[in-house]
Amino acid sequence: MRGLVAKISLGIIFAEIFLALLANFIAPYPYYRVDLENRLRPPSPTHILGTDPLGRDVFSRLVYALRISFAVAILSLAVALLIGTALGMVSAILGSVTDAVLSWIFDVVYAMPGFFIAIAILLIIGSGVMGTAAAISLTLTPIFFRLSRSAARGVLVKQYVEVAKALGASTLRIALNYVGRELMAVVIPAAVYMLSDAIALEATLSVVGLGVNPPTPSLGNMISEYKDYVFVAPWLVATPIAIIALTIASLNILAKELDKKLNAFLEAA
């Protein structure tokens, strides 16, 4: 049964990727087509998820939004996760000066409000998907750095690591084997849950001029635009949220499964 759940989760993720990639073919209407006479219509056969405040087809916007939001969220999360955990581990293992310098850098980044990071990136890289992803990943990196540094410090003093050290294992190997496994328990679920943060962040960045410009849809700007209509058209904001919830649930299940597989593999090895 667990296997089936994992398969369904995988199916959902693939379906979303599929929708995102083939948005041009799947969307029944252009995502930007304004139709003022048919605004705020509830779901119906012609518009399966209804229409938005400008009469645009919500389903069409949604499939395009998946494309942009997943691209931004996954790109930025992956970069933040990779850089954050790698540097966190390095910091914990090497200690002394490296630790001090890295901590300094990330303390400064952490103390910078998200939208100031966004402005800085905007001034350096400019607007667009890359700029947005860079800003979000920079905002999220300190948490991964801190978590992995803290987890790694805890693991590195454990008895069995001492034993491994005594047996002549290199620090890198120790790091990858023991620290990596420990991190899976914390950093991966944190990353999965950060997905909704990353998607929401993208929308807030549009306030300072980063993020995507209208009429291009993203899950974030759909939520921030549609939330003002919860009293008159609650289905509008429910749709992007349901998608995010579904994604997070599926990724959580998959992460667990992956963790289990990995553990089994490592134990066998």
């Binding site: 909704s196 939520i223 939330k227 919860v230 904001v237 995010i244 919830a245 997070i248 959580n252």
Partner: peptide, 21 residues
């Protein structure tokens, strides 16, 4: 676990709106 997913799938501001509603 399900509740945890529901809790995190909405940004904080939307939870605020739900409470207000």
């Amino acid at each position: 676990t399900q509740l945890a997913t529901v809790s995190t799938s909405m940004p904080a501001v939307l939870w605020g709106i739900v409470l207000m509603l």
